[in-house]
Measured scan of single mutants.
Amino acid sequence: TKKDTKLYCICKTPYDESKFYIGCDRCQNWYHGRCVGILQSEAELIDEYVCPQCQST
């Protein structure tokens, strides 16, 4: 049987260590910077990140 692979981001793909991720400070989920429109250089300046799903609630 195929091992359950945890899926990340709004694009629902397995973790890829070569890509940049940003963690939501509300739901603790991880998102590709590219998918949520945040560059790694911008993320370093953000104190708290809230993902699109949490922003809409």
Results as ranks from 00 to 15, higher is better:
Glu17His: 08
Ser18Tyr: 05
Gly33Gln: 13
Ile10Asn: 04
Thr57Gly: 08
Phe20Trp: 11
His32Lys: 00
Tyr49Val: 04
Glu17Gln: 11
Gln53Lys: 09
Ile10Ser: 04
Cys27Val: 01
Thr13Gln: 09
Val50Gly: 02
Gln53Leu: 12
Trp30Asp: 10
Leu39Thr: 11
Cys27Thr: 01
Tyr21Ile: 06
Tyr49Met: 04
Cys51Val: 02
Cys9Leu: 01
Leu39Ala: 05
Cys24Tyr: 01
Asp25Tyr: 10
Glu48Lys: 10
Thr13Cys: 03
Thr5Arg: 08
Trp30Gln: 15
Ser18Lys: 06
Cys51Tyr: 00
Pro14Glu: 08
Asp16His: 03
Gly23Ala: 10
Val50Tyr: 05
Cys35Arg: 00
Asn29Pro: 01
Lys6Asp: 11
Cys54Ser: 01
Thr1Tyr: 11
Pro14Gln: 06
Asp25Arg: 14
Cys51Asn: 01
Asp4Phe: 06
Asp25Glu: 15
Ile46Pro: 12
Gly37Lys: 13
Ser41Gln: 11
Asp25His: 11
Glu44Ser: 12
Cys11Asn: 01
Glu48Phe: 06
Thr5Asn: 14
Ile46His: 10
Gln55Cys: 11
Ser41Ala: 09
Ile22Asp: 01
Ile38Thr: 09
Ser18His: 10
Cys9Met: 00
Thr1Ala: 03
Thr5Phe: 11
Gly33Phe: 07
Lys12Met: 08
Tyr15Asn: 03
Gly33Asn: 05
Ser18Gly: 10
Glu42Gly: 05
Val36Gln: 01
Gly37Thr: 03
Gln28Val: 06
Lys19Ala: 11
Glu17Val: 05
Lys6Met: 13
Tyr15Thr: 05
Lys12Leu: 09
Val50Lys: 10
Pro52Cys: 07
Leu45Ala: 10
Trp30Ser: 13
Gln28Ser: 14
Cys24His: 00
Lys3Trp: 03
Lys12Cys: 10
His32Phe: 01
Leu45Lys: 13
Arg26Ile: 14
Ile10His: 11
Val50Phe: 10
Cys54His: 03
Arg26Met: 07
Cys27Arg: 01
Gly23Lys: 09
Gly23Tyr: 12
Cys54Gly: 02
Asp16Gly: 03
Ile10Phe: 05
Ser41Cys: 07
Glu48Val: 13
Arg34Thr: 11
Ile10Thr: 06
Tyr49Gly: 03
Cys27Asp: 00
Glu48Ile: 11
Gln53Gly: 14
Gly37Asp: 04
Tyr15Lys: 09
Ser41Pro: 10
Thr13Phe: 04
Tyr8Val: 11
Gln53Ala: 12
Leu45Thr: 12
Lys6Thr: 14
Ser41Asp: 11
Leu7Val: 11
Thr57Cys: 13
Ser18Val: 02
Tyr8Arg: 10
Lys3Phe: 12
Ser41Ile: 03
Ile46Val: 11
Arg34Met: 06
Asp4Cys: 05
Lys3Pro: 06
Tyr15Pro: 05
Gln40Thr: 09
Lys6Arg: 10
Arg26Cys: 14
Tyr49Asn: 04
Cys51Asp: 02
Ser41Leu: 07
Thr13Asp: 03
Arg34Cys: 04
Leu45His: 15
Asp16Cys: 04
Ser56Met: 03
Gly23Gln: 11
Asp47Thr: 12
Gln55Phe: 04
Leu7Asp: 14
Cys51Ala: 02
Arg34Ala: 14
Asp16Gln: 08
Cys27Pro: 00
Ala43Asn: 06
Thr5Gly: 08
Glu44Phe: 10
Ile10Glu: 09
Tyr31Trp: 03
Ala43Tyr: 11
